[in-house]
């Protein structure tokens, strides 16, 4: 029943990462440290033997209550490159389907003397809840909880931006699409604000924007052309198919016509603007293939940086004192 806020739950008494649940409450210097550490790991992934012994003897459990390919795979590779033992548990087809409570599932795996949980769950706050329940030596890494947060994705996006743009301060960033249901958007907004970009805009139909977007520190724009004017970074968000059946938007066709990123629209942004997408992409729904595969796109770099950034987060989270 612990309702600790993100800051007190995530950091130990010396300000080191104990869990990684949300960008909320993390300092700029910590985010920079994550990116710097990730930078040092990029060389590891280029070596013939792609391993460092930082997590040797540790057991990392990928606990996925919701299916995922990309995130789970990059977490698995990141943990293996740190020499950890990795256990993949797909709960969507496992224990809770048999009626076991979430807490019992956690307690059972915890009893196997594991060191870290990487958790993906369909409900907001799941990683917080688990972090509040696990034994003191166990770290919890949030690999996406409901609409709430996907902080490792946000960090790999920040890493990508830093690689491409260097300084965050002058940047104008646009997030386009289904912000309402997007944990990626929430974490990216927090990270971008912490790193001090000059402006963040969210662009989408009113049905797919959260209420009071201004309280997130962003400006809501309903016209894509207007919203992209002069931006340095365009972060496209995935539109899930079920949004059509629940009256959020009329059709893929109309959505693409109003909010799809095409070359013509991209021309409104700065000439050196980069286009990002957390994947998986719906080509022809939120983004035109010519943009997704074009010179402004850094989508595959994002995937590539996912491994060193997750290595950085896993290694930092095991260094915290209890």
């Amino acid at each position: 029943m612990c309702a600790a806020n993100a800051t007190t739950l995530q950091l130990d008494s010396s300000g080191n990462l104990r869990h990684f649940l949300s960008i909320e409450g993390l300092s700029r210097s910590l985010l920079v440290r994550i990116m710097d550490t990730a930078e040092s790991f990029t060389s590891v992934t280029r070596q013939a033997v792609k391993k460092v012994p930082l997590l040797r003897g540790k057991t990392v459990v990928n606990l996925f209550f919701e299916t995922s390919t990309r995130t789970r795979t990059t977490f698995e590779l990141a943990a293996k490159r740190l020499s950890a033992d990795v256990l993949n548990i797909n709960i969507a087809t496992s224990a809770t389907a048999k009626g076991e409570s979430l807490l019992d599932t956690i307690r059972n795996i915890e009893a196997m003397q594991v060191d870290m949980f990487v958790v993906r769950h369909a409900e907001s706050g799941a990683a917080h809840f688990i972090a509040g329940q696990v034994a003191p030596h166990i770290s919890v890494i949030n690999a996406g909880d409901g609409r709430h947060a996907h902080p490792t994705q946000a960090m790999l996006d920040m890493f990508t931006i830093r690689r491409m743009k260097g300084d965050f301060a002058p940047l104008k960033v646009a997030l386009v699409g289904d912000v309402l249901h997007s944990r990626v958007a929430r974490s990216e907004i927090l990270a971008l604000r912490t790193l001090g970009v000059s402006e963040i805009r969210v662009i989408g139909p009113r049905t797919l924007l959260p209420v009071h977007p201004e309280t997130l520190g962003v400006r809501a724009v309903s016209d894509l052309d207007q919203g992209l004017e002069g931006v340095d970074v365009i972060m496209m968000l995935r539109l899930q198919k079920e949004r059509m059946s629940s009256a959020f938007i009329p059709s893929e066709h109309e959505y693409f016509a109003r909010f799809g990123l095409t070359e013509t629209r991209l021309a409104k942004a700065k000439p050196d603007a980069i286009v990002m997408h957390p994947g998986p992409i719906n080509r022809g729904v939120e983004i035109d293939s010519r943009v997704a595969d074009g010179p402004h796109s850094v989508i595959l770099q994002q995937v590539n940086f996912g491994i060193p950034v997750r290595m950085a987060i896993l290694s930092l989270a095991t260094q915290a004192g209890a």
Partner: peptide, 15 residues
């Protein structure tokens, strides 16, 4: 409540 806290926490809101 569908308000700024639910927006931040990503909790489905009751308007």
């Amino acid at each position: 409540h569908e308000g700024s806290i639910a927006t931040r926490l990503g909790l489905p809101g009751i308007p």
